[in-house]
Amino acid sequence: MARLGKIQPELMKNVRSKQATVRYPFVKAGINVPEGLRARWDYKMPERCTGCKICERVCPAEAIEMIKCRPEDFQTKTGFRPICHLDRCVICGQCVESCPRGVLTLTDSFEMAFLSRDDMIVY
């Protein structure tokens, strides 16, 4: 007599079960965003930055560039501030770890698709 295989009972169970995936771009509820997710780079506390360039030196992807402080920026001690090129950033978080004053952070905003490279520079 033909017997059911191993997979058929599982299939029957799955007919009535909930959908395993989320229709992501249309529905955002149900996405698992854990605490401490490493995503978009952020210059969180400019007033604590001294412009020491450690973040630029440790960056493995050369994504962080030190530029001269613009007039609208907070003026650091050395006159330089970091910017991040998201197109090169590998989101390793080494800059956050190496910063002696806790200036930088990786936020949990993970939507990082842009139409041009200029939009990918985080000031």
């Binding site: 440790v58 960056c59 493995p60 992807a61 590998v90 390793c92 080494q94």
Partner: peptide, 9 residues
């Protein structure tokens, strides 16, 4: 690269 950078590479 430095050893620290090589970790990510």
């Amino acid at each position: 690269n430095t050893h620290l950078q090589n970790l990510y590479l």
